[in-house]
Design a protein around this nucleic acid. Sequence first.
RNA 1: UCCCCGGUAGCUCAGUCGGUAGAGCAGUUGGCUGUUAACCAAUUGGUCGGGGGUUCGAGUCCCUCCCGGGGAGCCA
Length: 487
Amino acid sequence: MPRADYIVPESWLTFQTNLRYLACMNQEVITVKHAFTLPVGTPVVLRGWVRSRRDSKGITFIELNDGSRFKSMQLVVDNGVIADEILKQVTTGSSIAATGALVESPAKGQAVELKVSQIHVYGTADAASYPLQKKGHTLEFLREISHLRVRSNTFGAAFRVRNALTHSIHSFFQERDFIYVQTPIITTSDCEGAGQMFNVTSLNVNQPPRTPDGTVDWPQDFFGRPAYLTVSGQLEGEIFALAFSKVYTFGPTFRAENSNTPRHLAEFWMIEPEMAFYELEDNMRLAEEFLKYIIRYVLDHCREDLEFFNERIEKTVLSTLEHVAESNFGHITYTDAIGELKKAGKAWEFPVEWGNDLQTEHERFLSEEIFKKPVIVSDYPKDIKPFYMRVNEDDRTVRAMDVLVPRVGEIIGGSQREDRHDVLLQRLRASGLDEKAYWWYLDLRKFGSVPHSGFGLGLERIMMYLTGLKNIRDVIPFPRTPGNADF
RNA sequence: UCCCCGGUAGCUCAGUCGGUAGAGCAGUUGGCUGUUAACCAAUUGGUCGGGGGUUCGAGUCCCUCCCGGGGAGCCA
């Protein structure tokens, strides 16, 4: 809906006057996205960055993008309207404000365009050295210029999708009475069983204080003992679930693993819901509902961006997302999955044997060949899963679940938690963990313990699924990987 | 961390048997009255990833280090 107080009267001739008008009305600058909704004839000031410029004799076309949506506004400058010395500065990458009126476009490609009456150049961008060209760049090259890649089509689309995705995650849980809990980023509970952790210390790492036997004297450190960056908020999430019934965390997590793959980051974002009174079946139902909800949301709110990914990055993005949002996930137990994989009669690189963990090749076969859609594998052997997962009646398997999706692999890992104090204690000991460090975790099973479940979703993993981008470094603003923490 | 592939102009790449550096795009200049990755013409542009070695001679062969990509493990 056009709002009169957004509209700059055409008679207000100078750019400075327009600026003052906007300022005194205390209005935010109109976006390109908003401008496309205004009726033809509306005078506006648009500001943004020049994507490209095309000159013909007597007429200049400028693509102006401000990030508000994928499509740029085409600015049309007729001969003589803008002084040559100003127009010369309007190059790819420069930042400008353009005053003019929205008009119907006589040519194909856009319904409306801005007929320019004035241009103000905020900042020039030397054409010879500005790295972004009008033609395609490789994602690897753009990754080296993370401060500028966000101005490109691909990364503009990716981070608008990421924004919508994070919004939808909060909406989903808030609509269902989940409480958002911020679990700590610094933790002293080591060996959470999820890989190498980053040490956090205020000691001088070159000359740490040492005890007589030569080991580092941790009591002198900031927290009085070794501290780490969290690898998961799950254990603290359980504390809150046993008070607020349904909670979720949404924050960064850290792994110091030396993983060099397109699917791993040292710093990534994770969503971890935790629900009291939920058994594994409830957990699986929630995971499926959750994934469908956020996929539907992004389909409904980022159509233009997804169409770009579908056209340029991965031709199956739209069809798979539509399919997944409508169809039911597959479900198979680990034991049955082993049977299916054996029946497939394929020559596996890793042997298919009950008790072995599923390898990437097995997971892909399940989701891509057998089910051809997301599939939940549940009830894994207890020996290959962490201590906190609830042991089944058979005493051989635990109430674990992994959601596997075609193309990306494991996107969710979760379980029903062990809520029996004696069993948990036994599992802790069997895993060789220090039960004293988990005193509060055991306490939760001593005082008002209830069945409860939860799962973790990697934000960047679902981003890869939504966009079709094949390297996780392209779906997070500033990727941290072994040997790389630039920007 | 392991295995494989790659690094040549700002970008994407070619470079034969070891003989002294190429194209497209971008940039620049000019042309074109409505372009859409505009088009047409001309033109500038190089420490061939770093170091070492073999050779009369290395972008090319060897060693080594760095960086990037793919696969694996770990996982989300």
